[in-house]
């Protein structure tokens, strides 16, 4: 495993996680320093009528601002945004967030693919995308889109993941992705934002 080149400037980080997400995010996001300079956009599969308790849970543990993404909200540096339950989260080319009630994708709303693909489109080679633990195939096409647009694709090592199916599917779709365990992801992310 070779760590992706740390020298190029990055503009945003996108993360997708499903089964086992809470633990995986708790192992990575709280490690980020208060001066972390990139926005982080996160899709976690949650049941449609559950309000996003995850954002408040992480806010208590993170040095960065953690919030639920709002429609048409300008994306701010050093902020962690979560997709609200039952809405897709997308990135607009001008650097704002958008929500939509489009059909579920991969049986999921929010869908990781929808976020990753729109972010790949908006950010191109400045994007870092991560697919973490999960028991479905969401995120695979999105990670490939990030790679194809010149961004950096990272997958949680399936053997390290609570549920291996999703990271494995991402790896199958995007074999060029770098695999890392959660510890490595935490330190890699920290290194990104302290430019």
């Amino acid at each position: 495993m070779t760590a992706p080149s740390p020298s190029r400037p990055h503009t945003a980080v996108v993360i997708g996680a499903s089964a086992g997400a809470v633990q995986a995010l708790l192992a990575t996001l709280p490690a980020l320093p208060a001066d972390f300079s990139l926005p982080i956009l996160v899709v976690v599969h949650v049941p449609p009528d559950r309000d996003n308790a995850l954002a408040s849970l992480l806010q208590a543990k993170c040095a960065l601002t953690v919030k639920e993404a709002e429609d048409k909200e300008p994306i701010a540096a050093g902020t962690i945004y979560f997709a609200p339950a039952d809405y897709h989260l997308l990135v607009e080319a001008g650097g704002t967030l958008a929500l939509s009630t489009d059909e579920p994708v991969n049986y999921s709303r929010p869908s990781i693919d929808v976020l990753l693909e729109s972010a790949a489109d908006a950010y191109g080679d400045g994007l870092v995308g991560l697919v973490l633990t999960g028991a479905n195939h969401d995120g695979a096409a999105g990670l490939k889109a990030i790679h194809d647009a010149g961004g950096i694709a990272i997958v949680q090592d399936p053997t390290d993941a609570y549920a291996a199916v999703m990271p494995q599917a991402a790896l199958d779709a995007c074999p060029a992705a770098t695999t890392m365990n959660l510890d490595a992801i935490a330190s890699y992310l920290s290194s990104l934002g302290s430019a």
């Binding site: 048409k72 897709h88 997308l90 990135v91 607009e92 080319a93 958008a98 939509s100 489009d102 929808v114 693909e117 729109s118 489109d121 908006a122």
Partner: peptide
């Protein structure tokens, strides 16, 4: 219309 979603569709 919000472009990212239109583009996707």
């Amino acid at each position: 219309y919000a472009r990212a979603s239109i583009k996707r569709r």
